[in-house]
């Protein structure tokens, strides 16, 4: 089972579904960021699984995952500093509070 492509694809689609549920159901900005990390992780798991089982060049998928992780780090930095800014202005990080996007 640990050497079949399908089991990894099932795990990754379960991670993706959990992330989408968190995106739709939660109202806390940090929880939304956590769901986003889950979705990105399901994508990287898919890349590595396809890289192992279907691709002749075994480095291409791994390089892609390195890029995904770097972009996730950039996105988390910007997202967290925006959350802190919003908390200082509104004293809440509920996304219902962030309705107006004026300066």
């Amino acid at each position: 089972m640990s050497q079949s492509l399908e089991s990894y694809l099932f795990i990754s689609s379960a991670l993706f579904a959990a992330g989408v549920y968190g995106m739709l159901a939660r109202r806390n900005l940090v929880a939304l960021l956590i769901s986003l990390e889950l979705i990105l992780n399901s994508a990287s798991l898919n890349f590595v699984a396809f890289n192992r089982f279907l691709l002749a060049d075994k480095t291409a998928g791994q390089v892609f995952v390195v890029f995904i992780i770097a972009l996730a780090a950039a996105e988390a930095t910007i997202g967290l500093s925006l959350i802190l800014l919003l908390y200082r202005k509104k004293h809440s990080i509920n996304i219902e509070e962030a309705k107006e996007l004026r300066g």
Partner: peptide, 20 residues
């Protein structure tokens, strides 16, 4: 219908660095 797995190849750090 997924094709049969071919799992041998170079997974090493040197190959990843060369690709990067």
């Amino acid at each position: 219908p997924w094709p049969a797995a071919e799992t041998d190849g170079d997974y090493g750090l040197a190959a990843i660095g060369k690709n990067l």
